[in-house]
């Protein structure tokens, strides 16, 4: 599972990065890598079976806190 995730990410890099380098889109490259890093961490955690807290529960708590 984890190897699949890594493979997918390598695939994404192989697709996007050469074009960005050729066009010298450095800023875009940085944003891309940053986002990809976030995505990578999240999906690796998910693949390893890390239990994330429920997102909508979090929003519920937040909304109730603000309204109070």
């Amino acid at each position: 599972m984890i190897s699949l995730v890594i493979l997918t990410f390598l695939g994404i890099i192989a697709i996007e990065v050469p074009g960005l380098i050729r066009k010298k889109y450095w800023k875009e490259l940085i944003v891309f890598l940053l986002l990809l890093f976030i995505a990578f961490i999240a999906s690796i955690l998910l693949a390893m079976g890390f239990e994330f807290p429920s997102l909508i529960k979090g929003i519920e708590i937040l909304i109730k806190y603000i309204l109070r």
Partner: peptide, 28 residues
């Protein structure tokens, strides 16, 4: 940025991951 193309796949992954952790059961 000058192009949005490189952002597509990273965001795709993020959306998927968020989708999984959105809620535990449909009853929520």
């Amino acid at each position: 940025l000058r192009t949005y193309h490189p952002l597509v796949f990273p965001f795709g992954v993020i959306i998927t991951v968020l989708g999984v952790i959105n809620y535990g059961a449909i009853s929520e």
